[in-house]
């Protein structure tokens, strides 16, 4: 793996970040927006692991940041899905433009 320079891995994670950004901009369904957010978090994780591996191979800080980001992403996905189910129960739609009011 030492033949691949660090910048190629960073280009891959940048492309993944902007793919997720495109999904976040164009989609209007809450579940697909959640999927885009997961892609964004994953691109950040790739960055952390690649920097740790290439620049500080004797340390573990990037690994810990990745693990904590994964844990927070799991909590965030669970809360989002609870909100989605609540929203569907009240509006019968999870389109973000169909929900005009915050209080039910």
């Amino acid at each position: 793996m030492s033949q691949v320079p660090l910048s190629h891995i960073l280009i891959v994670s940048t492309a993944l970040f902007f793919i997720g950004m495109y999904g976040l901009f164009t989609r209007r369904n809450m579940i697909t927006m959640l999927m885009s957010v997961e892609l964004l978090l994953n691109s950040v994780n790739i960055n952390f692991v690649a920097f740790n591996k290439y620049l500080y191979p004797d340390k573990l800080e990037g690994v810990f940041f990745t693990l904590f980001i994964i844990a927070i992403a799991a909590a965030e996905a669970a809360v989002t899905i609870a909100i989605i189910i609540n929203l569907y129960r009240n509006f019968h739609s999870i389109d973000v433009e169909a929900t005009g009011e915050m209080k039910f």
């Binding site: 579940i31 959640l34 996905a77 899905i81 989605i84 189910i85 569907y88 999870i94």
Partner: peptide, 11 residues
């Protein structure tokens, strides 16, 4: 799996 569950519940 959670996302697929919520797709089946709401869509």
């Amino acid at each position: 799996v959670l996302i697929i569950f919520s797709i089946f519940l709401t869509q």
